[in-house]
Write a protein that binds this DNA or RNA. Structure first.
Length: 225
DNA sequence: GCGACAG
DNA sequence: ATCTTGTCGC
């Protein structure tokens, strides 16, 4: 069992090696059990500080009504390095997950799933070590090529790496930049898009991640005073 | 060598 | 990610 402590004293080089090992275990088989609860996870922190606030919000699916939430605060040592985001944020998220009284059927992470150079975005990483269905929903591209989707709600375009589709670029709201949706683990490509689409309200960011972001920001303001 | 580069 | 009010555009 991987605990938050497992990540202590891990070097970037070792992190990349671990990603290459985990890559073999990725499972993008569509989830067959019903999704009744969906979670949104995110972290927040003050610039130049090592204290991070992690939180997870659980909502009824597809009604998008909040059912539960948990947030924790802890310190991180691993720096932000593009491609290694999971090693900075997952430890804190694991603690928030433990504190959750109601575990969601699927979790949406603020970042990519398999739309990553080694297919190990934060959503895939979390999903693999927790054997939990996950979806990655990032605000900007990390890797891959795509054609800009139309400017209407839910217009979309596949995100490719070579010949392989690694995600979908989704316009969740007109006149707003699209979001990047990709399977994390134990969920299919089309299924992840379908689920995220149903989580969209009147904002660019889907409800699970949007509410998690608001939660951790409030915790940060509270905690840093 | 140069540009790109989730949060 | 975070620092931050008003303001331009759909």
């Amino acid at each position: 069992m991987i605990t938050p402590e497992f990540y202590d004293n891990l070097t970037p080089s070792e992190a990349v090696a671990l990603q290459k090992e985990l890559r073999e275990k990725i499972d993008c088989t569509p989830l067959t059990t019903p999704v009744r609860y969906i979670g949104g996870a995110d972290i927040s922190f003050n610039k130049f500080e090592t204290t991070v606030y992690a939180g997870i919000v659980v909502l009824k699916y597809p009604e998008m009504v909040v059912q539960a939430h948990a947030s924790v605060t802890c310190t991180v040592q691993f720096p932000y390095i593009s491609g290694l985001l999971a090693f900075r944020e997952v430890p804190a998220l694991l603690k928030a997950w433990d504190a959750l009284t109601l575990k969601p059927d699927i979790l949406v992470l603020d970042g990519h799933g398999i739309a990553h150079p080694r297919r190990l975005g934060i959503a895939t990483h979390f999903g693999l070590i927790m054997n939990q269905p996950t979806i990655g929903c990032a605000k900007t591209r990390l890797t891959g090529v795509y054609q800009e989707p139309g400017n209407h709600r839910f217009d979309q375009a596949p995100l490719f790496d070579k010949q392989e589709q690694i995600g979908t670029v989704l316009r969740t709201k007109p006149n707003c930049n699209p979001v990047f949706v990709s399977p994390g683990n134990r969920v299919g490509m089309d299924q992840s898009l379908e689920i995220i689409t149903r989580c969209c309200g009147k904002y660019r960011i889907p409800e699970p991640t949007r509410l998690a972001h608001m939660l951790v920001n409030q915790e940060r303001v509270k905690g840093s005073r």
